[in-house]
Write a protein that binds this DNA or RNA. Structure first.
Length: 249
DNA sequence: GCGACAG
DNA sequence: ATCTTGTCGC
């Protein structure tokens, strides 16, 4: 009998063939734990990755934030990493391309912060459970780090849903293979809805309420916007100084 | 063969 | 993801 508490039962490579990657996803999905998130979560880590068209240079950023009692966020620390992509972008296999870069950004974050990071939840730009094999980027990262995680994507990958209402807060269940795997949420009037799904150590209700709690009238949750701004600011600076990338302050 | 297809 | 200016609308 294997130890059911291992984050990842068998370490796997990040540069497998597409067929091997799909097999790992099916295997890893069996390790997911769908459970309520601590409603009193306060520390949140948010990750984002960006790159120039056709360039194999991936820039990853992870921000560590603290949710204050008044609902605002405080920036505690940040980490950065530039990685050479070892896997192409293939719909359904995004985590094999971006997670390695995100893991290095986490390492940088810990190095700067001076101690191990144990965020109450990790917010990811991409799908969680709403995936062909139930293992979107949020699930994969959460499993690897053994931390609760939530996925929020701008467009659909899988699943069917009824039209979402026009008002902020309106939502519609995302159904895949007869199972509710996520929620389509209107976060801003006249803007496209977001696709939220749980990652690891989290359930659908927890995922949707957390994302909604991170929204402030804009289409994207504030943490996602901050991470996106941070990683793009760094990438643009690195593009000017060409070769090496000097991390932000 | 055709359509779909996170970032 | 990124390439890109202006433009329409609240």
């Amino acid at each position: 009998m294997t130890d059911m508490t291992d984050p990842v039962t068998i370490p796997h490579p990040w540069n497998p063939t597409p067929a091997q990657a799909r097999a790992w996803q099916t295997q890893l999905a069996t390790r997911l734990r769908l459970q309520p998130l601590d409603p009193n979560w306060s520390t949140l880590a948010v990750a984002d990755v960006s790159s120039d068209r056709g360039s194999p240079r991936l820039f990853a950023t992870v921000l560590l934030l603290k949710r204050k009692s008044d609902g605002s966020f405080e920036r505690l620390a940040e980490g950065y990493a530039e990685v050479r992509a070892t896997f192409p972008y293939i719909a359904g296999l995004l985590s094999f391309r971006e997670v390695p870069a995100i893991l290095r950004a986490f390492d940088d974050l810990e190095a700067r912060h001076g101690r191990s990071i144990r965020p109450d939840v990790i917010l990811c730009d991409g799908q969680g459970l709403a995936h062909p094999r139930g293992l979107g980027l949020a699930c994969h990262l959460g499993l690897w780090l053994d931390r609760p995680s939530v996925g929020v994507a701008k467009t659909r990958l899988v699943g069917q849903f009824e039209p979402v209402g026009p008002s902020p807060g309106d939502q519609s269940p995302l159904i895949h293979q007869g199972r509710p795997v996520g929620a389509v949420i209107r976060t801003r009037a006249r803007a496209g809805p977001l696709f939220v799904s749980p990652g690891h150590l989290c359930d659908l209700d927890s995922a949707t309420s957390l994302v909604w709690a991170c929204c402030d009238g804009r289409r994207q949750p504030l943490p996602i916007r901050w991470a996106h701004e941070a990683v793009n600011r760094w990438r643009r600076a690195a593009r000017i100084n060409e070769p090496d990338a000097s991390c932000p302050t």
